[in-house]
Design a binder for these strands. Structure first.
Lengths: 257, 257
DNA sequence: CGTCTGGTTGAACGTTATCAACTTTCGTGG
DNA sequence: CCACGAAAGTTGATAACGTTCAACCAGACG
């Protein structure tokens, strides 16, 4: 272990599990964590560790990789947050996702051997590098790992499709609710506080992701605050009425009663 | 071979390769076709064939599977076309994709073990069933197959992300152009005519997929016809100015000059 | 021949984008 | 530590794009 495990100290995302659990979950990144429930042997774990041990720091605003870079490695976010975005022909960008600790970057690059998007750090971050060729070699030795990997890719497809649904037929309030609920539940799944979150992305980026403008996001936030759904100060968000937010996100209830 | 290979007889999608090539490409479905360039041994091919041999007919309007069905099999489209769609909480549907011969259905179900969407036949169709557990067993024996499978899943992610881009920041003309260009190039990649296509889906379904209404699609078609980009009669489309269509789709040129 | 489904066209409306002015926050160097 | 300038966010007025509502048309089918 070359250095202590640090988490954002601002208190917004206090892990809600113990330090031991934390160490187990994060010491060797996502893939390892994901394989724990599957029950790898100690020996297999060691092999896996060897593949995913390399760490890399990425400063805020730096690119982890860019569109058309050759695909060699996957990355697991250890600390920090990223955004991935495609650059359109006319220079515009479309954000395709935000990644938090424990999530994998680069799965979309396997098919073509080139990265399909840029990945930019939203804050000072740290990733595990996973040499894809080495990972592939492990697949034949550890079937449980392979299965887990397929689940991971499939999950990415599912995630993208739910964004398609969001962009394709939700109104702005519904989109924004869905965005918050999604973030919240992803934090919850990773043991972080789920009702009190610090947005790592700016209004502009939220808007871009949701197919809306920065002004619309601003107005939505104001609206949600006034309705007593949220407490917001800058990028600090506290969700006050999660049930209602879920209802709006699911479409079972419109914003105005 | 339990029955003769039939293709849609309407002539809209005449394969442009020879009958022999056709037989090679389609006799045993997509996965086999995809593995040909990788160079599987004859023995491996046989094993693969054993897994994907089962055929199933699906009549127009029938569901191949529905949301929450347990995931057991993948499907490769042999003949016909499908649409996949998610049903929202309030009963609306959002189409997540259209699948043509040679494309795979069900990849999104791996992560949860349940299908995430309905798959409905747009016309009388035929699929190969691929028992997923058997396919998994083959992966350990045939690394080339595994690699191909990962490429396939990754491609699906890429595809979904480009739809996100479409829905997130394209104007209606650009969306529709992108839709046509996409269809066209997918047909081309599979050896079908690419400038003369028969739409297998209705206006409503196109609109749903593109995040627009049926009326908007209707108006777009009229507009594109008048501009000399397309010739359209019912669901028969002839692309007259592919370069311009591509330009509009890519955003490098707006619709009106 | 009437009905039904799918598609087209027109007019009015509404949501969200755009444009513009302004305020707040933040980072940096004095 | 403060002050400044730049970046990010807010708010209002106006406009545009696509939706909605409605009427109408064409082909398919009993």
């Amino acid at each position: 272990m070359e250095e202590p495990i640090t988490f954002s100290e601002d208190g917004a995302h206090k892990p809600v599990f113990s330090l031991d659990e934390l160490r187990t979950r994060c010491a060797n990144c996502n893939l390892r964590e994901l394989c724990l429930p599957v029950g790898l042997s100690g020996e297999d774990m060691d092999r896996l560790d060897r593949v995913i041990r390399k760490r890399q720091r990425v400063a805020k605003g730096e690119l982890l990789y860019r569109q058309d870079d050759p695909f060699l490695r996957l990355f697991a976010v250890r600390v920090g947050h990223f955004k991935t975005y495609q650059v359109t022909h006319d220079g515009e960008q479309q954000i395709t996702g935000f990644q938090m600790p424990g999530e994998i970057l680069g799965l979309d690059a396997i098919s073509s051997g080139k990265h399909q998007c840029d990945a930019k750090a939203l804050e000072d971050s740290e990733v595990c590098e996973i040499q894809y060729s080495e990972l592939e070699a492990l697949f034949v030795q550890i079937p449980a790992l392979l299965r887990q990997f397929h689940r991971l890719m499939s999950q990415e497809i599912t995630r993208d499709q739910s964004v398609m649904l969001l962009l394709g037929n939700m109104a702005s309030e519904q989109r924004f609710s869905a965005f918050l609920v999604n973030l919240s539940s992803r934090y919850a799944a990773r043991g972080y506080a789920s009702t009190s979150l610090q947005l790592r992305m700016g209004r502009e980026e939220i808007g871009n992701y949701l197919g809306l403008t920065i002004e619309s996001i601003s107005r939505l936030i104001a609206k949600f605050k006034k309705a007593g759904l949220l407490e917001v100060s800058n990028r600090e968000v506290r969700i006050l009425d999660m049930p209602r937010l879920r209802e709006i996100a699911s479409g079972s209830r419109s914003f105005d009663k």
